[in-house]
Design a protein around this nucleic acid. Structure first.
Length: 454
RNA sequence: GCCCGGGUGGUGUAGUGGCCCAUCAUACGACCCUGUCACGGUCGUGACGCGGGUUCAAAUCCCGCCUCGGGCGCCA
């Protein structure tokens, strides 16, 4: 495992950033006997009368600054006491060992400089004494991310993306980037965001599906992409976003079972990376005990087995029959029953998109698969239809005009190898891994039905 | 797209027709306090989303609008 992520050694500032910040010391690195300059946000001021404590917070943690009337310069003490919470200050002084201090060290300041004052009435409380609603938090994301637990989510998200990239590299993938502005939709039917492109109608892409398929027929053969997707569905749920991060895989010369193997490897790698490199972030989130890397082979249920098991739970009012899509309640019942990540394979062809290949011996049965977390769907994939005639017929069956997709279909006339792949919802991975209640918590600036700003 | 539930000081809340010129916490301001660690204490400032209606009386009931959240469908 590459070193990096949340637990990498605290980054030392190298060159001059600001004249007063040369050789800035992170609060976590301040050791007794050092002469240091720390810089950060005023987390709290505790004024006990003749003595006061200023808690300064930076990326690495917090440190206590002692202010004492009798033994220190009046102006220095006054500066320290006048500063509002969440103002940015830099403090120079000596670090002393002090068992009575929260971190066993405190700084005796020689100078305090206020670099940026904060207004006194904060729109939310970064010290976490008073809760804020998600909406308030998202409106003030900068302040929200000053809270350790919120920061930890994004440190872990960063580690997930790093480990996922490393896993794709293990698999011999090339990372690609495909256009997000497109002339036509990917799968038809789905709501797309229309935009104007130099006077022409265009759309925000809902998936890199068609483009990544075109790349398996290129010299690259095996690719992955991590990028935004846009869906104009007006849903309002804790697990949908209108702009999400899709983690996509596509490879030539593999079938759907091998694509599932790759999927399992990538998802497990994300968990392993977090387990290995995000110890303190997990601790901040209170997940140290319960965090588990998915173990062993993930169960692979056929669609038929899945509906039977759902029916057997008795959770649904109406029994499912072959051909039904799985309702949310059914997914949940099955998730509880299985109790781990699992795959659902061999879906009825009619409820999977046209570009998914049917089984050769049964055209009612598709090679499509979903990978599920007990709480929700994470991944959708399958072996693709690589035969030109079948593909064009599929378009027509779905009521789509193949001519509109000529840029895509014509490449199937020049040697498109058998291939398979999948797409993984990045935010859903973060959300399910950390047990977040709302997918919006897994994005810095979520786009949903009501939210376009910030 | 269909359905349901909310909006009360900066923040989070209590209050379901008169007991409310509105509760509590935190924040903010003033004062006291030399080892706090959610420091403590005293005092103070500050709010019923907007518009209309019902009623002797509306935060509370009704209608419209705005806004936030959730369920389903669909999906990652």
């Amino acid at each position: 495992m590459e070193k990096g992520g949340c637990e990498s050694p605290v980054f030392k500032t190298g060159g001059p950033v600001h004249p007063t910040m040369q050789n800035r010391t992170f609060t976590a690195d301040a050791a007794p006997g050092d002469e240091v300059t720390v810089a950060g946000w005023v987390h709290e001021v505790r004024d006990l009368g003749g003595i006061a404590f200023l808690i300064v917070r930076d990326k690495s943690g917090k440190i206590q600054i002692k202010l004492e009337e009798d033994s220190m310069d009046d102006e220095l003490v006054e500066t320290g006491l006048d500063v509002a919470r969440e103002s940015v200050i830099s403090v120079s002084g000596s670090v002393k060992e002090e068992p009575r201090a929260p971190t066993d060290v405190e700084i005796l300041p020689e100078s305090i400089e206020v670099l940026a004052e904060s207004d006194t009435e904060l729109p939310l409380d970064p010290s976490g004494k008073v809760d804020a609603e998600l909406s308030t938090r998202l409106d003030n994301r900068t302040l929200d991310l000053r809270k350790g637990e919120v920061k930890a989510v994004f440190e872990i998200r960063s580690e997930i993306l790093r480990s996922v990239r490393a896993a794709f590299r293990d698999l011999g993938c090339t990372e690609i980037n495909t256009p997000k502005i497109v002339a036509t939709g990917t799968e038809g039917g789905t709501e797309l965001f229309p935009i104007t492109y130099f006077g022409e109608e265009a759309f925000m892409n809902q998936s890199p599906q068609l483009f990544k398929q075109l790349m398996v027929g290129s010299g690259l053969e095996r690719v992955f992409e991590i990028g935004p997707i846009f869906r104009a569905e007006e849903h309002n749920t804790p697990r949908h976003l209108n702009e999400a991060t899709s983690i996509d895989f596509e490879s030539a010369f593999v079938d759907h079972t091998e694509a599932m193997d790759a999927c399992e490897h990538v998802v497990k790698s994300a968990y392993e990376g977090v387990a290995a490199n995000c110890e303190s972030a997990l601790e901040t989130l209170g997940l140290t005990e319960e965090f588990e890397v998915p173990d062993g082979e993930l169960p692979r249920l056929t669609y038929e087995e899945a509906i039977e098991r759902i029916n057997a739970t008795g959770e649904l009012d109406e029994q499912l029959v072959w051909g039904d899509d799985l309702p949310t309640e059914g997914e949940r019942a099955l998730g509880d029953d299985v109790g781990s990540h699992y795959f659902i394979t061999d879906w009825p062809s009619e409820i999977k998109p046209f570009y998914i290949k049917d089984h050769d011996d049964d055209e009612q049965l598709s090679t499509g698969f979903d990978m599920m977390h007990p709480r929700m769907e994470l991944v959708s994939g399958g072996q693709r239809e690589h035969r030109y005639e079948h593909l064009v017929a599929g378009f027509e069956q779905q009521g789509l005009d193949p001519d509109q997709f000529e840029y895509y279909t014509k490449m199937f006339k020049y040697g498109m190898p058998p291939h398979a792949g999948w797409g993984l919802g990045g935010e859903r991975l973060v959300m399910t891994m950390l047990g977040l209640e709302n997918i919006r918590e897994a994005v810095l600036f979520p786009r949903d039905r009501q939210r376009l700003s910030p």
